[in-house]
Nucleic acid binder design. Structure first.
Length: 216
DNA sequence: CGGTTTTGACCTGCGC
DNA sequence: GCGCAGGTCAAAACCG
């Protein structure tokens, strides 16, 4: 739990950034089906989203090592847990260093190598699930897709996005559950170092929910 | 033409 | 050590 920081708000004091709310929430806010916009739902925001996803959606977990789990305080998953997961959000999500100004990732990241002896530090991550027909939530930031992978036990691929703002290395992963095709799990990693680039009424609603229920 | 998406290859970590 | 799965890179294709 060392490095847990809010993920959605960019890390400045801009008014657009909602103040962090107390952490340690455990709320299963799943749907707002009465909402008419594209995201016909409020996000379910979790302090440890995968606790819920394990139970309900059987997703994987973040952080193998509780001490390095990017602030997600939870016991380590086993391989079998991950293997059984519904296209589990992998514990490999965390193989990046925490330097937001460093675009290169650390071990486990493609062709970039980490030097021997470098300590792996994991970025905090925040995942939430929404019930939506579209995969991409318009959260007001601009994202560039840099990869897509088929996920085990999930017929839907996982997409990888990076914030396009110069110097901002926030990433997100988007994955739809095969068990429940209406559910999209979005995992954010890192903290935006800049204001939201465009206002989105839709996402403001979501952010509002998140301010209430999560420190993410 | 510049930015974004697609996609195959590559790399790492982990379990067996 | 090997194989698998996840994460990233980067060239090519695509699009406005």
């Amino acid at each position: 739990m060392d490095n847990f920081t809010p993920l959605f708000p960019y890390n400045s004091s801009s008014p657009a950034s909602p103040p962090p709310v107390s952490s340690h929430l455990s709320l299963n806010l799943t749907t707002n089906n009465h909402n008419n916009n594209n995201y016909s739902h409020a996000p379910a925001v979790y302090d440890d989203p995968y606790d819920h996803l394990d139970d309900d959606q059987n997703l994987g977990l973040i952080g193998k090592n509780p001490d390095e789990s990017g602030g997600l305080d939870r016991v380590s998953p086993t391989t079998s847990e991950l293997g059984n997961s519904e296209g589990g959000i992998s514990d490999h999500l965390n193989n990046n260093n925490t330097n937001n100004s460093n675009g290169n990732s650390a071990s486990g990241s493609g062709k970039i190598h980490i030097k021997k002896g470098d300590k792996k530090i994991r970025k905090p991550k925040c995942a939430f699930q929404t019930r939506s027909q579209v995969d991409i939530l318009d959260d007001g930031y601009r994202w560039r897709k840099y990869g897509q992978k088929a996920v085990k036990n999930n017929k839907f691929p996982r997409s990888y996005y990076r914030c396009t703002y110069q110097g901002c290395n926030v990433k997100k992963q988007v994955q739809r559950l095969s068990k429940d095709e209406g559910v999209v799990v979005t995992t954010y990693e890192g903290t935006h170092s800049h204001p939201i680039e465009k206002s989105t009424d839709n996402f403001e609603h979501i952010l509002t929910q998140m301010q209430i229920y999560s420190s993410c």
